[in-house]
Design a protein around this nucleic acid. Structure first.
Length: 583
RNA sequence: GCACCCAUAGCUCAAUUGGAUAGAGCAUCGGUCUACGGAACCGAAGGUUGUAGGUUCGAAUCCUACUGGGUGCACCA
C-alpha cells in the first residue's frame, strides 16, 4: 500500500473515533513542503475548528491523541494554527524499504480500477521536417504512455498524422510546377519540404487572415487538395508516392528519441468515414446547414464548428470526430487522451461536446494541453509558415555532440572509469537526448515553453545528466561492493538523518507516480527525481558505504544504494531517458 | 469587437490545486579539494508573487476592476 495511504487510513480512524469526517481528515494529509516540519502533515484541524467554532489546536491535539501509532508513526506534533506534523518511525521506514527492495516492481500494486487509455500524441504534418515544435507533444505523450503502463494500466498509443490536409495541395501544386526532379530523386523529403516553402512564397498574402483577396496560387493549391480529397487518380498516385519517404523520415526521428506507437493512423485513415459522420450529425440535428456549409452552432459568442465546407471538403473537426468514434468502438477504452497544444482548446472542447451529443459516452475524453513553443524573442514559433529554423534533427545532433565533448577521453582522468570507445557513442546519445527530453518534461506543461538552445542542452543542475550521474555513482559503489543486485534480503537500518531522509524519499515512489498520472504531469516526476538525487547526494556525502564502520551499516547502505539506483532507473525509464553504468 | 490563457529573484522556471518563513537551476560572490566518480558538495546574496481592492483562520493560487503580453474566433489542419 502507498505510504500516504497508510497515513490517511490512520488519520481516518482517528477522525472516526472522534466523530469527524474521516474522508475530509484523510484528504487533508499531504507530504510536508518543508522537511523540518516532518514527513507528512494533516491540515484538517483548521477547517474543523472553523466549522465547529472551536480552537483548531484543540482539535489537532484530539486527533493526535486518537491516531493509532502502532510503531509506524512517531507521536504527532502540533504546530502553528493547528497543523499536525507526522513522522514515520525509523522502524517503519526500514520495513517499508525492505518490502520495496524485495518487490520486483518496487512496491507498485495493480491499479484498481484498471484503465485502458488511448493516447494520441505527436501527430506531425508529414512531408515537412520535424522541428522543435513537435517535441513537446511527442515527449510528453510518450512519457505519459510509459507512466500509465508502469502503473499497470493498458495503453494504446496512436500517432494521428497530418497526412491528408491542405499541405498536400501545396505539395502537389509544387510538384507539378516547381519540382527539381534530381533533388527529388536524391532526397524526396528535403525536396518536398523545399517545395512547401517555395510555393508559399508565391501566395499573394502572407497571412491567412488576408486570404480573401485574389490569390491564384493559393486557389490552385486548394484545387489540388480538393482533387486529392475527391480521390483524383493522378493526385492520389502522387500522394501514395510521397507517403513512404515521409514515413521513413519521421520514423528516423522517433527512433532516435526512443518513441514508438502502437498505431500510426493519419487523417487519411478516417477519410472514408467522413461522409457518414456528417450525415449522422445532420440527421440527428446536431449539425445544420448554414451558408452552404454544414456546421454545429454555438450561439452568438462562440464560433461554430465546421463539419463540411462549402466546397464539400471535410474539416479536421470531422476527422477528429470520426477518430473518436472509431477509437471508442474499436478499442473500447476508458479514456482517450489528446496531447495537443493549448491553442486547440476550443477545437477539442467542441469535438468533445459533439461526440457526447452524438452518443459517445463510454470513454472519458481528455485534452492534455500544453503551452506553445516560443522563439527566443518570446513569440510563438509558427510551424505553418515553414520558417522554423531549428529542425529536430539538428537539435538532437547538437545535443549529442555536446555530450560527446564532455565525455571525451581527456575529460576523464580515471582510467578505470573511462568509458570504452564502443560505449562512448551510446553514452553521448543517452546524455544528449536525455538532456533535451528532460528540459521539456521538467517544465509545467501548461505554461508556454520558451525555446532556448542552451537550456535545452544544459547538463548542469536539475537535468537528466545529473540523474544519470547519480545513477552511475550508485552503480559504481555497487560494482565495488560486489553487490550489483544489492542483496534484496539485506536488513535495512536507518540511523542517521541522511538515511532517514533518503529512505522516506524512496518510499514515496509509488505515490509520486500516481500524483503525476492524476493530472498528466510528468514534471512531478522530474521534481521527485531532483529531490531524490539530492537526498542521495547528501547521504553519499555523509554516510560512508564501503568504509562503513560496522557490517550492519555496510549492508544496509549497500541496500540503500541499490534501491536508489533502481528508483532512479525506474523513473527515468518512465520519462523515456536511458541510464548508464559509466559516463 | 467577443472568448480563453498568462504575468513569481537579473535570466529560465517550481510551488503536490487554499496551508506554515514563496522554492530551485543558471548567472554572481565565497568556501570544500590526495576524491566509496569533481559531470560533485556546502554557503551567501537576490521577492510588496504586474497594480488596486475583495473573499477567510490562511491567497502566488479563488472573485472584481485595471495594466501589459499571448492565443483562438466559417470554409488551413
Amino acid at each position: 500500500m502507498k505510504l500516504i495511504q497508510k497515513i490517511r487510513d490512520r488519520m481516518a480512524k482517528a477522525a472516526d473515533a472522534l466523530g469527524y469526517s474521516a474522508m475530509d481528515v484523510a484528504a487533508s494529509v499531504r507530504p510536508c513542503n518543508d522537511p523540518t516540519h516532518g514527513h507528512y502533515q494533516a491540515n484538517a484541524a483548521m477547517a474543523l475548528g472553523k466549522k465547529l467554532g472551536r480552537p483548531p489546536r484543540e482539535i489537532a491535539s484530539e486527533l493526535a491523541a486518537s491516531v493509532p501509532l502502532d510503531g509506524f508513526l512517531a507521536a504527532p506534533e502540533i504546530a502553528g494554527p493547528g497543523f499536525l506534523n507526522l513522522c514515520l518511525t525509523d522502524q517503519a521506514i526500514a520495513t517499508g524499504l525492505e518490502e520495496m527492495a524485495a518487490s520486483p516492481c518496487l512496491g507498485l500494486e495493480a491499479p484498481s480500477p484498471k484503465r485502458k487509455l488511448v493516447i494520441d500524441f505527436s501527430g506531425p504534418n508529414v512531408a515537412k521536417p520535424m522541428h522543435v515544435g513537435h517535441l513537446r507533444s511527442t515527449i510528453l505523450g510518450d512519457g505519459l504512455a510509459r507512466l500509465f503502463r508502469t502503473l499497470g494500466h493498458e495503453v494504446i498509443t496512436v500517432n494521428h498524422l497530418g497526412d491528408w490536409g491542405a499541405q498536400f495541395g501545396i505539395l502537389l501544386y509544387g510538384y507539378k510546377n516547381l519540382l527539381n526532379r534530381e533533388a527529388f530523386n536524391a532526397d524526396p523529403v528535403k525536396e518536398l519540404s523545399r517545395l512547401y516553402v517555395e510555393v508559399r512564397k508565391h501566395f499573394a498574402a502572407d497571412d491567412e487572415d488576408e486570404a480573401d483577396s485574389v490569390d491564384p496560387v493559393r486557389d490552385a493549391c486548394r484545387l489540388e487538395t480538393a482533387k486529392l480529397h475527391r480521390l483524383d487518380p493522378e493526385n492520389l498516385e502522387l500522394w501514395k508516392q510521397f507517403m513512404p519517404s515521409c514515413l521513413e523520415e519521421i520514423s528516423k526521428a522517433y527512433n532516435r528519441l526512443g518513441v514508438s506507437f502502437d498505431h500510426i493512423r493519419g487523417e487519411s485513415f478516417y477519410q472514408p468515414y467522413l461522409a457518414d459522420v456528417a450525415a449522422q450529425l445532420e440527421s440527428l440535428k446536431i449539425a445544420e446547414p448554414s451558408q452552404g456549409a454544414l456546421v454545429v452552432l454555438y450561439g452568438e459568442k462562440e464560433a461554430p464548428a465546421l463539419i463540411r465546407k462549402r466546397d464539400g471538403a471535410y474539416t479536421y473537426a470531422t476527422t477528429d470526430l470520426a477518430a473518436v468514434k472509431h477509437r471508442a468502438d474499436h478499442f473500447q477504452p476508458t479514456d482517450i487522451v489528446y496531447v495537443v497544444d493549448s491553442r486547440q482548446a476550443q477545437h477539442f472542447k467542441q469535438v468533445f461536446d459533439i461526440a457526447k451529443r452524438w452518443g459517445i459516452t463510454g470513454p472519458k475524453l481528455h485534452h492534455v494541453a500544453f503551452g506553445s513553443v516560443l522563439g527566443p524573442d518570446g513569440k510563438p514559433i509558427k510551424t505553418r509558415d515553414g520558417k522554423a529554423s531549428t529542425t529536430l534533427e539538428g537539435l538532437l545532433d547538437e545535443a549529442v555532440k555536446l555530450a560527446a565533448k564532455l565525455n571525451a577521453p581527456e575529460a576523464n582522468d580515471s582510467a578505470e572509469l573511462a568509458v570504452p570507445v564502443l560505449e562512448s557513442e551510446e553514452v553521448a546519445s543517452a546524455v544528449g537526448i536525455g538532456a533535451v527530453k528532460y528540459a521539456d518534461l521538467s517544465q509545467n506543461r501548461t505554461t508556454d515553453y520558451k525555446f532556448n538552445w542552451d537550456k535545452m542542452m544544459a547538463m548542469d543542475g536539475n537535468t537528466a545528466t545529473y540523474m544519470q550521474y547519480a545513477f552511475a555513482r550508485c552503480r559504481s559503489i555497487l560494482r565495488k561492493a560486489g553487490h550489483l543486485e544489492g542483496s534484496p534480503e539485506a536488513k535495512i537500518k536507518v540511523e542517521t538523518p541522511e538515511e532517514r531522509f533518503l529512505g522516506v524519499m524512496l518510499l514515496r515512489y509509488a505515490e509520486v507516480l500516481e500524483a503525476a498520472a492524476e493530472d498528466f504531469r510528468p514534471n512531478i516526476l522530474t521534481a521527485y527525481l531532483w529531490d531524490l538525487a539530492k537526498a542521495f547526494s547528501v547521504f553519499f556525502q555523509n554516510c560512508p558505504v564501503l568504509k562503513a564502520q560496522e557490517e550492519g551499516a555496510l549492508h544496509s547502505r549497500i541496500a540503500l544504494c541499490a534501491l536508489t539506483s533502481k528508483v532512479l532507473e525506474a523513473v527515468l525509464e518512465v520519462l523515456g531517458i536511458r541510464v548508464l553504468e559509466r559516463m
